[in-house]
Design a protein around this nucleic acid. Structure first.
Lengths: 107, 107
DNA sequence: TTACATTATCGTAATATTGCAATATAATAA
DNA sequence: TTATTATATTGCAATATTACGATAATGTAA
């Protein structure tokens, strides 16, 4: 129990759900918005900007990383988080397609 | 602990997260897709189509109802679920705006 | 080297979500 | 009236998520 029965659903439906899950927390929405609007890459700042503790921010960043939305230089002296634009477009299209598929005739 | 600290975030960010949460389960994605593609309104069928138990489907439908995506005739002899297209467009626009706001210059 | 700053991980507590059996409710059919 | 059908609600068990203190790991600066 308690576990989502992913095996019942199509790859497409599962994938959209996984993507939506990343956006299903305001901190991750705020983090993504913040990073995506920076002209240059940012590093930390998020703890101050968001207002959650550093471990919590790190955890949220990890969720965002896991679906491939973060891109950049994670090693060396310049720590840098930025959006993987290719993946961003992919997800954008997935949501767009989902919302575009409504039928014309409904009550 | 365990609770999302919504008070830290803007109304907009919280609203998008709440909407995303509804799409964050493949059953709800599948239910919405199924309903939205029906020419006429459907009633039950979902238990058969989706493959989860009736109480679980009912629970998922309730989550979808709670953000206003379901519209129709819930009383009387014709039980009928269909998409509230106005709300659907609203959410579509929210996600679109979110995904459109990425900056041009990123690493 | 030591000290400092930044980020990740571990461990844990609180809460939320998922799923279903059992049951209740509501409307129609016989 | 008594079935029958469709949907909702209750209660509970299993699992997932959220948050953070403590600590580890990594890199830079002195």
């Amino acid at each position: 129990m308690g576990t989502t029965k992913s095996e019942l659903f199509s790859t497409k439906h599962n994938a959209l759900a996984v993507a939506a899950k990343v956006l299903a927390h305001p901190a991750r929405v705020a983090i993504l918005e913040y990073i995506s609007q920076q002209e240059a890459c940012i590093c930390n700042d998020l703890v101050d900007v968001i207002g959650l503790s550093q471990p919590t921010i790190s955890q949220h960043l990890n969720e965002i990383k896991k679906i491939g939305l973060l891109h950049g230089n994670f090693e060396g002296k310049n720590l840098c988080y930025c959006i993987n634009r290719e993946r961003w477009e992919e997800l954008k299209n997935s949501f767009q397609k989902f919302f575009d598929q409504i039928a014309q005739n409904c009550c």
